[in-house]
Structures are given as C-alpha cells and as structure tokens.
Amino acid sequence: MTILVTAASGQLGHLVVDALIARGASPDSIVAGARTVAKAADLADKGVRVVPLDYTVPESIDAALDGVDSVLLISGSEPGNRVPGHLNVIAAAARAGVSKLAYTSVSHADTVELVLAPEHKATEEAIAASGVPAVLLRNNWYMENYAGDLAGAAQTGVFSAAVGDAAVSAAARVDFAEAAAVVLLEDGHVGRTYELAGPRATYADIAAAMSEVLGREVVYAPATTEELSTRLASFGLDEATVGFVVALDTDISRGALDVSEQDLTNLIGRPTTSWVEAFRALTPAS
C-alpha cells in the first residue's frame, strides 16, 4: 500500500509521516507531497519519496497520486482560499481511483458556528459527492495555536482573550497526526467521521498550565471584543485579520470548540497530550 500525505512540508504533515513510520509503514511506501520540496528534505533523508504537489496546480496532484492507494488531504493554510485547492485534490483522487481519502476537517464542521467551518463543510460535501471512499478527521483546536500567548505570558504573566469563561477541547498536533496515521494504515475506517478532541479546558485552565511550565503565575484576563480589536490593531494587523481573529474568539465564547467526544483517545490508544506537556514542548529551553 502506498500512502500520499499532502502538505507534508508543514508541521502536521511532517508529524503524520513520522507517525506512519513509527507505526510500521516502510518509508518507501510513503509519498510526501510538498509545494516546496526543499522544505521536506528531512523526509527524503528518511527514505520517503518527496514530490512536488501544489493544490493550485492540478497536474502536480495527478503526478503525485500516481500509484497511490490512500491519500491524506491536509486542509490548506489560507482561510478563505482553501476550497478550490481542495476540490483539485478531490478530483485528482477520483481520477486516480484511490481506495481511501482522509481529510483534516474541523470539529462538527456541518453544524458548528465557527468562522472556519464553511470551507470545511464545503470540502466534506465535495468529498461525498465525488464518490471517493473517505474518512473525515474533524480536528478540534491545536494546543500549539497558543504558542504566541505562551510567549506573551512569559513576559507579562497575563493570558488574555475575548472568550469569557468558554472552553476548548484542544489536543496537540502530534495527537492529531497519530490519528491520521491510524486511519491511513488500518482497514475499517472508510465511511467514518471522527470528532477528534482532547479534554475540555477553560482559558483559566490553560493559564494554569502556562504557570506550571513557565514557573511564574499566569492570570487569565478576559477581554471584550473591543479590547481585543484594539490590541490586535496595535500590533499592526490589518482590519481583515483583526476581524477574523475577533470572530474566532466570539465563536469560541459561544462554545464552538467545547466538545466531549473520545474518538481521538480511542483511535490512538492512549491519553492525549496534556496542556503542560504541549507547552513544555514549545519551551524546550525552560
């Protein structure tokens, strides 16, 4: 069986390849697709075949899929511009007759009120319409999304967001990567939709984990959307970016990422990474 991992030069893609190998896949059975091949040179050093793959260049996708049985479509990195590239990959997978297409979606993509969800919902619908045998991996939030907040808290002792007392069910990127490796390597997952999430944590809980890792008190300070907008603008962010971030916090405040499913731990066969473990990995010098 040959497996293609798209966007393999990215952080999640790298980790998926590592997880595939750790779970027994031969490196020469893995194809790593990367828009910039040089960024995946370390994967080539492991014996993985690295090929050019750009979601906006259909012929590169067709070439990457040659001889491939299963493919992981990692969602594009540009919110607002993801769907056309996803459609190109789905169409190429249909042409290639792959036996399994796994897609990294977002938590409860078909029902959640989350600014990121519509593109994922549209992609899921396109996959269903294509007839390609598929698995949906609906990832909750990445703990690594708070790396900047952790760095800021190290300086100020404050972790601030406009989410009120809401919670997220985030997990570490390595956990999501391992789940993807499991469904790619094992039979029995086609047709399934997995809601992948870690344990529920409020922002006060996250601040407590920051405190433990940083060795200093970190206080969660709820902000209003107006305060958040002003702070983001002071960093030099453009109006569209400010609006997007504020919309994310607003959606989180309404419970968009507060879920309780156990699919992730069931798939990977172990507890998910804790906030403390994840933050320690982000501060290796501490």
Rank of each mutant, 00 (worst) to 15 (best):
P199L: 07
L185P: 07
K121A: 15
R82H: 07
A19L: 06
A278M: 06
T111G: 10
A126D: 01
A181P: 12
A94L: 09
R231W: 09
R216V: 13
P58E: 03
T56K: 13
L257C: 11
A41S: 15
V5L: 06
T224M: 03
M210H: 04
S107Q: 15
M143W: 06
V98H: 03
D69C: 10
L136W: 03
I30G: 04
G97Q: 10
D28M: 12
S169I: 03
V219W: 00
D54M: 03
W141A: 14
S26V: 08
P222Y: 05
A122P: 04
A92L: 09
P199G: 12
S130I: 05
A94E: 13
G164L: 08
A134G: 10
L20Q: 07
A177Q: 07
G10I: 05
L237Q: 07
P58N: 09
L73C: 06
R231E: 10
V71K: 02
L12A: 08
L264T: 04
G269K: 10
F159I: 08
D258C: 10
I252L: 11
V17M: 04
A7L: 02
A204L: 01
G188Q: 06
A122G: 05
A153D: 06
L282K: 05
A128K: 13
I30L: 06
A94K: 15
I127P: 07
M210S: 02
D69G: 14
T156P: 12
A25G: 13
A129Y: 04
S130M: 11
D54R: 05
T272G: 14
P27D: 11
V98Y: 02
V218T: 13
L185K: 06
M210A: 02
P84H: 06
D62C: 05
A151P: 02
Y146V: 13
R216G: 13
Q262C: 03
G243S: 05
D251E: 04
T230E: 12
G198I: 04
E124W: 01
A162F: 01
L214Q: 08
Y220L: 07
V213L: 09
G85P: 10
V183S: 13
A170S: 14
L282H: 04
Q155D: 11
L73W: 00
A91L: 04
H86A: 15
V158Q: 12
L137F: 02
P27N: 11
P222G: 12
A207R: 03
D18F: 01
A172T: 02
I252K: 06
